[in-house]
């Protein structure tokens, strides 16, 4: 079983960190995994993206042509990566920053006002975690419990972020479940 996830947005929206949360959650469950950043000029501003592959068997090819899921945090990211989700896959869209027209009907699209929800929580930079929450129920190999365990480690240096990140993730999960 495998989860191939693409995450994209503006630099500064926590794209790489979101990917790392998934990757470290996979580490905690002894999965094989890859965390693949876009690197080079792209990391100097503009769009940022990374992808994460989680698998319960050995990963050979690291190249994702079509992903099982994607999180897009703004409109340019949506335009670029919506076509890259495989039919039947899941796309989480931060609808605060991406108004959609003519959406694909062969994938599940979750439009979640993540930036607004993050603002309500008092921290605009956790929109990425709200989106992660919205994706979690669709993943095969990582769930909330695993993320919770990982978050503990990832925020060790800044423990004040642990609670707020977990709250944001829970908001995302509730949004989808409702």
């Amino acid at each position: 079983m495998m989860d191939k996830v693409i995450i994209a947005g503006f630099g500064g929206q926590g794209v790489m960190f979101l990917g790392k949360v998934l990757a470290y959650a996979g580490m905690g469950s002894d999965l094989d995994l890859l965390w693949i950043p876009s690197y080079g000029p792209e990391m100097r501003g503009g769009t940022a993206n990374c992808s994460v592959i989680l698998s319960d068997e050995e990963i050979n090819s690291p190249v994702i042509d079509y992903s099982d899921a994607a999180i897009v945090l703004n409109k340019p990211a949506y335009d670029k990566f919506a076509p890259r989700v495989k039919p039947g896959g899941v796309l989480i869209v931060n609808s605060s920053l991406a108004k959609l027209e003519d959406v694909r009907d062969d994938i599940t699209i979750v439009q979640i006002p993540a930036t607004e929800m993050a603002n309500e929580l008092g921290n605009t930079s956790i929109a990425n975690m709200v989106c992660l929450g919205a994706l979690l129920p669709s993943l095969n190999l990582v769930d909330y419990e695993k993320v919770e365990k990982t978050m503990d480690k990832l925020t060790k240096k800044r423990p004040q972020l642990l609670e707020v990140n977990l709250t944001a993730i829970n908001k995302g999960i509730s949004f989808v479940n409702e």
Binding site: D32, L34, P37
Partner: peptide
């Protein structure tokens, strides 16, 4: 190569 260098893997 750049891919192997930048990617995180266990």
């Amino acid at each position: 190569d750049g891919f192997l260098g930048q990617t995180m893997e266990p």
